[in-house]
Structures are given as structure tokens and as C-alpha cells.
């Protein structure tokens, strides 16, 4: 770089640019908070859904599945599983219950978590709540 562009100019761009764009990030984050009530499906965030999220986390479901496209890519996307299973929480519960304890020969299989009825219902309701979030029409189709 030529002598016209000095080290102190470079330093000023670093400090000025970083501070400016950090403040912009905070401003956009504030604006995002304002926009959320319209989009985040919070009206359906019941205590049961909260419990469902806790179970989702405590069993590390995101270690295999993705949820709204984030997580692992070993097992299907679950952000729209409620719709994929015909808008049925019963179908979701039935699938989770049906998993064999020792897996399936040569194939990927979800572990058997031995959830009780109340826990199964909470997880299914959590997934139903997630499917109501406004995700800008993602995923592209029902397969997730």
C-alpha cells in the first residue's frame, strides 16, 4: 500500500467502522424486537410449549435434527413436521413412541426416549408452536 494511505488512517477506519456498524446492529436489533410480536407466534407460547422446549433441549434433539434449518443434518427438519404429519400432534407422538430401543439394523433410527404421555404432548405442542412462526415461507416445500 502506498504512503498516501497511512497507518493512522487504517486505524481510524477500524475504530470508526467497527463502532458505527456495531451501533447499526444494535439499532436493527431494536427494530427486530419491535417487529417480533407480529411474527413470533408468541400467543401460542403456553406453559406446555415451554415444557416442550425444555425437553427438546434436555434431550439434545438438535444434535441430529434441524429446527428452522439450524442444527444437525442427520435427521429430518422439524420446523414444519406438524404440517408434514397432516397437522396432527398425535402422529408426531406416535412416531416418537414407536422407535425401537436397539435401533434398526444398518439404518439411522431415533433413540427410544421413554417419554410419558404428558412429555410427549409437550414436545408435540412445542413443534406445533414452532410451525406457526413466520419464517418468510421457509422451507420451500413440505419435505423440509
Amino acid at each position: 500500500m502506498s504512503e498516501v494511505f497511512t497507518k493512522s488512517m487504517a486505524r481510524n477506519i477500524f475504530y470508526g467502522g467497527s463502532v458505527f456498524f456495531f451501533l447499526l446492529l444494535i439499532a436493527l436489533t431494536y427494530q427486530t424486537h419491535e417487529a417480533w410480536p407480529e411474527r413470533d407466534n408468541h400467543e401460542n407460547l403456553t406453559d406446555q410449549v415451554r415444557h416442550g422446549k425444555e425437553l427438546w433441549e434436555n434431550n439434545n434433539c438438535v444434535g441430529c435434527h434441524s429446527l428452522l434449518g439450524e442444527g444437525a443434518y442427520f435427521a429430518p427438519e422439524l420446523g414444519n413436521v406438524y404440517q408434514r404429519y397432516g397437522n396432527s400432534t398425535d402422529a408426531i407422538k406416535a412416531f416418537i413412541m414407536s422407535r425401537p430401543k436397539d435401533g434398526i439394523e444398518g439404518r439411522r433410527s431415533m433413540p427410544q426416549f421413554n417419554f410419558n404421555d404428558e412429555e410427549l404432548e409437550a414436545i408435540a405442542q412445542f413443534l406445533k408452536y414452532v410451525s406457526g412462526i413466520n419464517t418468510n415461507d421457509w422451507p420451500p416445500n413440505i419435505q423440509g
Binding site: F14, S18, L68, E70, T135, W138
Partner: peptide, 23 residues
């Protein structure tokens, strides 16, 4: 200086590429 300036100038708001589909 100029490398880390560009890293933060692009990368801070670049966080937005993770916000497309999560509500």
C-alpha cells in the same frame, strides 16, 4: 488494521444472513 476493519464492517451486519428464516 485494514483487514480487521473490513472483517467487522462486513461481519457485524453480516450476522443478518442467519436471520433469514428464523422469524
Amino acid at each position: 488494521y485494514i483487514i480487521v476493519a473490513m472483517a467487522l464492517i462486513t461481519g457485524l451486519i453480516g450476522t443478518g444472513h442467519h436471520f433469514f428464516w428464523i422469524g
